[in-house]
Design a protein around this nucleic acid. Sequence first.
DNA 1: CTGGGAAGTCACACGGTCGGAATTACGCCC
DNA 2: GGGCGTAATTCCGACCGTGTGACTTCCCAG
Lengths: 159, 159
Amino acid sequence: MAVQENEGYRGPQVCKIVGITYRQLDYWARTDLLRPSVSEARGSGTQRRYSYRDLLELKVIKRLLDAGVSLQSARRAIECLRGGLGEDVASANLVLDEGSSVLAHSDGELIDLLKGGQGVFNIVRLNGVVEELDAAITEFGPAPTVPDTHVEAAAGSGS
Amino acid sequence: MAVQENEGYRGPQVCKIVGITYRQLDYWARTDLLRPSVSEARGSGTQRRYSYRDLLELKVIKRLLDAGVSLQSARRAIECLRGGLGEDVASANLVLDEGSSVLAHSDGELIDLLKGGQGVFNIVRLNGVVEELDAAITEFGPAPTVPDTHVEAAAGSGS
DNA sequence: CTGGGAAGTCACACGGTCGGAATTACGCCC
DNA sequence: GGGCGTAATTCCGACCGTGTGACTTCCCAG
């Protein structure tokens, strides 16, 4: 399946869905935190195109930042999330210990993790993130303020 | 009991015990994160004097920073720790949720907390912190590189 | 008085983000 | 094809938070 030009979510759309500024999205793309996986921009006036998976990761980053975690630590968290690609991510807890990150799938596993490590942890509960993202896509993704059949088709193919 | 001039820990000594730079300690004192509770400096050449409690709080701050938490969030955490003054802090877990901080005293309490809130948490396990601090004081506090009976007395009165 | 140590001062660096403006591509219309 | 308008990216300087390093000033003990 060849990548269609309209596939994925545009930069400004992503900012609305995830709840971040364009500046942030741009900086993160430029500094390799999260680049648009569907399509990079080819210059001014062209568009970055992000996948649904990109949006999920961005949402997690946003949460971490809101909780006062530095962007550097968020970078590590995202690496872990990318490593857990095949797992049931939506029901897990992402546990960041100093220098490492793990996905915990049960309360017991979580408690065990908290007894080890260096003694300081960042925890991201993932099971509400997908729902929240889907709700935001419903609001900002398929139905922009200015009705646009063209954009609607793009949003549909992104999920 | 009047405060003795030699009471408490001197600035550079605190840096060794806690494992931070003098610049950090200075910046934190100047920006009101943690000021020396025993005695402020009265100008160049005079000394800041910190209490044992100050050192404990500094150690927690250090841990948070090492885990990638911003200083702003660490400020909130310390406020919570100050609020839990009468509690058995040494065996608790400090749980930072977005906008609030709580001390959890059992695994069950901890799990409950993780099911609420905004979904992102910073957790500091406190039960090793006191031991670690006491070990560092044994190393850097009462027995500096240059033996000094004067300083030894100060360290003794700090605990 | 002198020397050592501690705090104070100041310019700077870096990460992260912001605002404003410039540049560019693209789609549409004539 | 050319022109126009819109949207998106790029560029640039500035700001803020969090320190760092070099240097100065000051205090205190001997």
